[in-house]
C-alpha cells in the first residue's frame, strides 16, 4: 500500500503532461491557417484599408465612386446583368434539373456528363467560343439571316447581350447540379399523395414540387448571383470597354490607372455585397449551401 502514496504525485504529473495532446490537432491546421492569413486575409484587408488612406485619409474615394454617373452606371450594369443571368439560369435550370432527376438513368448520365464537361472546360475556351459564335459574321447571325429571320446582322458582342449569354452559359451548371440533388431527395410518394388528394399536375407543381425545391433554387440563385457580381473574364471579353462591370473596374483602377484608393473602394463595395449575400445564404441553409440541406 505504500506504493500508492508514491505513485500518486507521479500519476498527477503524468495526467498533466498529457493535456497538450488536444492541441496537436490545432498544430496541424497551422500551415493552412498561416497561408490563408498571410496571403489572403492580410492582403485583402490591406487593399481595403487603402480605400480610406489614399491619397489622403478620408472617404473621398467612396464619394467619388458613388457620386459619379459613370461609376453608377457600372454598378447598375453589374447588378442588372447578374439579376438577368440568375433569372434565366433558374428558368432554364429548374426544368433541366427536374428532368435529370427523373429521366432514365442512362440518359441522365449523358446529360450530366455534358453539364460537367461544359463546367470544367477552360473558361477562356468557352468565352472564345461565344466571341466567335456571336460576332457579326458569326454562325448565329449567318444562320438567322439565312433563315430570313433578320436581314441585318445583330450586334451581340461588345454589349450586355453577349455578356448575358456568355455568363448564363457559365452559370447554368451551378444551378442545375445542386438543384438536381435537391429534387432527387424529394420522395415521389409525396407527389403521388398530392395527386390522390385531387391536385392537378399544375397544382402539384405550384403547391408541392416548387415549394419543396425552393431551398435548392434560392441557394443556387444566391450563389449564381454572387458569382456573377464579381465575374471578370467573360464580361471584359464579351462586353467590351463601353459596358464595363464591377470586377473589370477594380482591375482597371489598379492596372491602368494605378489608383489604389479607388480600387480598394470598389473592391470593398463588391466584398460587402458578396459577403452579406453569403451570410444570408449561411443563415438560410448552413455552411454546406443548398446541397446538403
Amino acid at each position: 500500500m505504500a506504493m500508492v502514496s508514491l505513485a500518486k504525485p507521479d500519476n498527477e504529473k503524468r495526467n498533466a503532461r498529457r493535456r497538450p495532446v488536444l492541441s496537436r490537432d490545432f498544430v496541424s491546421i497551422l500551415p493552412a491557417l498561416l497561408l490563408v492569413l498571410v496571403f489572403f486575409v492580410a492582403p485583402v484587408l490591406a487593399l481595403l484599408s487603402r480605400s480610406v488612406t489614399e491619397p489622403v485619409f478620408g472617404l473621398q474615394n467612396y464619394i467619388a465612386l458613388l457620386g459619379s454617373s459613370t461609376y453608377l452606371k457600372i454598378f447598375f450594369n453589374t447588378f442588372f446583368v447578374s439579376v438577368l443571368v440568375t433569372v434565366i439560369s433558374l428558368v432554364i435550370g429548374f426544368p433541366v434539373a427536374w428532368t435529370l432527376a427523373i429521366m432514365p438513368q442512362r440518359w441522365a448520365m449523358v446529360v450530366f456528363a455534358i453539364v460537367l464537361l461544359s463546367m470544367w472546360t477552360n473558361l477562356l475556351a468557352r468565352t472564345y467560343a461565344w466571341m466567335v459564335l456571336l460576332q457579326r459574321t458569326g454562325v448565329i447571325n449567318k444562320t438567322l439571316m439565312g433563315m430570313g429571320v433578320i436581314d441585318q446582322p445583330l450586334t451581340m458582342v461588345n454589349n450586355l447581350i453577349g455578356v448575358t449569354i456568355g455568363m448564363t452559359y457559365i452559370m447554368l451548371p451551378f444551378i442545375v447540379i445542386p438543384l438536381y440533388g435537391v429534387i432527387r431527395k424529394i420522395d415521389p410518394a409525396i407527389l403521388q399523395a398530392a395527386a390522390l388528394c385531387g391536385a392537378t399536375r399544375f397544382q402539384s407543381l405550384r403547391l408541392v414540387l416548387l415549394p419543396l425545391a425552393a431551398p435548392g433554387m434560392i441557394a443556387g440563385a444566391l450563389m449564381v448571383f454572387v458569382m456573377s457580381l464579381g465575374y471578370f473574364v467573360t464580361p471584359s471579353l464579351l462586353g467590351g470597354t463601353a459596358n464595363m462591370m464591377l470586377a473589370e473596374l477594380i482591375a482597371q483602377f489598379v492596372q491602368s490607372l494605378v489608383n489604389w484608393g479607388m480600387g480598394g473602394a470598389a473592391a470593398l463595395v463588391l466584398l460587402v455585397v458578396t459577403l452579406s449575400l453569403y451570410a444570408l445564404q449561411l443563415r438560410l441553409f448552413g455552411l454546406a449551401g443548398g446541397e446538403r440541406t
Binding site: 487593399l47 477594380i250 473592391a267 458578396t274
Partner: peptide, 23 residues
C-alpha cells in the same frame, strides 16, 4: 476556421488578385 478556409472559394477572385498583386 472551416468557414475561413472556404472563403477564398466564394470571394470574387478579382479582389484577391488585386490584393495579392499589391502585396
Amino acid at each position: 476556421l472551416r468557414a475561413l478556409f472556404m472563403t477564398p472559394m466564394i470571394l470574387p477572385v478579382v479582389v484577391l488578385a488585386v490584393a495579392l498583386y499589391a502585396f
